[in-house]
Every structure is written in C-alpha cells, then in structure tokens.
Amino acid sequence: MGAHSLLPFTQDRDTAGFFEAAAEGRLVFKACLDCGHALHPPTDHCPRCGGWNTAWKDAKGTGRLHTWTTVMHQIHPDFPAPYTLVVVELDETPEVRLMGRLQGEPELREGMPMEVWFEPLGEGGPVLPQWKPVEA
C-alpha cells in the first residue's frame, strides 16, 4: 500500500475501542450483551432490545466476501487506481460487515473466504484491520 495521509479519527467515544484493539492486533465488534445483536457501526445502545449493556467482542478474524468494486478513477492523491474495495461479512455474525482494500484488480468471487490482517498507518500511527483472500 502507498503512503497514508488519510488517518482514521481514533478517539471517538463510540468507535475508539475498535482502533485500540486493532493497535493490539485484535479484531473486535460491538455487541449487545443482553440480546446478542451486533452493532455496526458501533453504538452504545441496542435498538433491537433497548438495552444499554453493550461491549466489544473479539472476532475470529475470518469472513466472507459480500461485494466489491475496483476503483479505476482515482480521487485521492494517496490512493492510486486501480485498487479494489472489499466488503467482508464476519463469519460469526452477518450483522457486521467491514471494509478492506486490495491492490490492483484481483479475481474475486462472491462468498470467498477472507482473513484479517493489520495495517499500521506509519510509525506510531493508527492501525487498520484489512482483509485478504484466504490462501488456498
């Protein structure tokens, strides 16, 4: 991946836990401890059961490819085209889908198994969970 100048804000009160875990090499998602509903993007209130008892849960770090697009027209100077955006559905819950980026124009198919890896954005910078196809 190229140089990164587009950094995620990591101190948001609802989302900081995601990036704190990523910095430790862990993938987490927010979930309601009362009814089990997964909450993404994360919130601290569960709209399904009305509870406030939510927490970060560890994910296995595996998922399935839900959809993708290969960006051919460059928008941002630090994101040279072509690159491919992937949307990955976590294996433990279809309620959480996360973004990832692959270089170039890889051959992809719906439902293919994907696994997480962690991309540090520069020295001491934030860390992004990324996704790649599981090696056959």
Binding site: L6, L7, P8, D12, T15, F18, H76, F79, Y83, L85
Partner: peptide
C-alpha cells in the same frame, strides 16, 4: 487528514479508500 468521528463513522470507510 484525520477523518471521521463525532457520529460520522467515516473512520470505518474513508481511510480504506471508500471515498
């Protein structure tokens, strides 16, 4: 640029290149 936060949730998308 630091992006997202404050209820925008852009931090989950823009840094990946979904822009």
């Amino acid at each position: 640029e630091v992006v997202g936060g404050f209820g925008s949730y852009d931090e989950f998308y823009l840094p990946y290149g979904l822009q």
